[in-house]
Design a protein around this nucleic acid. Structure first.
Lengths: 269, 269
DNA sequence: CGGAGTCTTGAGGGCACTCAAAATCTGTGG
DNA sequence: CCACAGATTTTGAGTGCCCTCAAGACTCCG
């Protein structure tokens, strides 16, 4: 059982270096090869459904996968967008529980699959793999925190602008001094991602159109390359919802300073 | 270097069985003991500050720790409450980056510390430790998702009620047919946790008081033991913000059904 | 050309935010 | 024990954002 890099099923993948499977070797590699499969998904096709048993860990190879949670009232929340190089299904795998989310392709996509039992073997054979998966967890936690914070600190208009800028980075192409892209998501999905109703999404688009931030025609979006997030008015700091003056900035900070004379972590071991 | 369970620094801790360090043995144990320390925190004292270097992984032994993020405008968001048995600081450890949050005791607390370099050794010596830490990551991800969903699906009043019920489980004591507790958090902190302004928090409290859900006197909260979350009016399903009839439940579900004839994961490997 | 689905627009209302000020609580010193 | 300063909490007034309901416009297809 010799193994060289060229034996690795992820070799040749553009994301090989950063792949969570990249560290696999020796015994790990054979398990990895055993459990490995590829799968092509049509647009709108589901990779797994909410409440499904976990069948393995998936790595997005191309395309775009939406990870959603459906609620009992028929609405849904778009939890995240999985791009090539991202892995999904690991939450359910690590928890040893059913999927709490649904994964569905937004555009024709390809994913690589490592079957459930073989993931365990690969991890058992090579701890570094788990280290990398943990790294992905941390990334996920970070982005969740960012989203929680954004929700409570920024108005929806700003959040939509930020989202469109992110999408532009991935899907946009430069055209003179303008960026443009074909949106990979429906308005409804955008609304789910921001956490507003579709009607509100429509109105947010109009606001951004009106203040000149972007041009819209169906799913074709354009924005000036230089003006990332400046509504023509005055420049304002990341204030909390609408503008306001600099009252506050006192209590918690002051508390931190007085702090009963305890410096943060004196490390008195 | 013999090691028995009684050698384990966490032995004797009420959370020993579930501890992320519990699997440590042999080489891992010696590293664990080397890096181990305890620390008592006064109320309001910080364990680590935002942007601090990671000094290790902390396990809450007693008390209550608030994990916050401070924003540039002086506001802050309370990310989570860490109870005894919870570990904190692992995000920063796994990412190999500075803390993105601040950890501060809400009440007099005790934490156990495993110093940074020794965490690496323990993990290196015993992969199961990392498996458990990954499990904590998953728990964190789940609770983040729950919060993201709650934010976009439930009105603030309901979220406050849910939060108070959770707190009641941890801090409440039964007194006849009433539950009561002393809130471990200020109104401001509660507001940060729900994602509203303190004034709004005050008004939410009044609503819950008015509709009979709870009694309030300063930080003393009381609620009937039998009525977990029922405003005296009609029973309503988990509808999205305020009541409404059962329009919708069509688009996405319908989409899932037609689905171009692709069943979810045909597993055509 | 007629749906079906998606997106937009309009009307009306409730909730939460901001600003401002009063009220209450807490700890300290006389 | 009371007075007082500082901090926290509550209340009031006004406004804007976002939601719901409802209907119209647009698009894509068979």
């Amino acid at each position: 059982m010799t193994n060289t890099k060229s034996d690795h099923p992820c070799n040749g993948c553009a994301f090989y270096q950063g792949s969570v499977w990249q560290p696999a070797n020796a015994a790990g590699l054979s398990a990895l090869k055993r459990g490995f499969a590829r799968k092509d998904l049509a647009a709108e096709q589901a990779l797994y459904a909410q409440d499904d048993e976990n069948r393995g860990v998936f790595c997005v190879s191309s395309g775009l996968i939406a990870v959603r949670t459906h609620h009992s009232d028929g609405t849904s929340t778009l939890i995240k967008l999985a791009y090539p190089g991202d892995i999904i299904g690991y939450r359910s795998f690590l928890a040893g529980a059913r999927h709490k989310t649904e994964a569905r392709a937004l555009v024709p996509s390809r994913v690589c699959i490592v079957a459930h039992r073989d993931v365990s073997h690969v991890i058992g054979a090579n701890p570094t793999v788990l280290r990398r998966i943990a790294g992905r967890c941390v990334t996920e936690i970070d982005s969740n925190h960012a989203r929680i914070i954004a929700t409570s600190v920024k108005p929806n208009r700003d959040r939509l602008r930020d989202l469109l800028l992110e999408l532009m980075e991935r899907h946009g192409h430069r055209d003179g001094d303008r960026l443009s892209m074909h949106l990979p998501l429906s308005r409804t999905d955008l609304a789910d991602l921001i956490g507003v109703r579709p009607e509100t999404m429509s109105r947010l688009f109009r606001q951004l159109k009106d203040d000149g931030t972007l041009t819209v025609s169906g799913r074709e979006i354009g924005m000036a390359v230089t003006a990332p997030s400046r509504p023509p008015e005055a420049g304002l700091l990341p204030r909390r919802h609408s503008q306001s003056r600099d009252t506050r900035r006192s209590s918690r900070v002051a508390t931190a300073v007085r702090d009963h004379g305890h410096p943060a972590i004196p490390t008195d071991r």
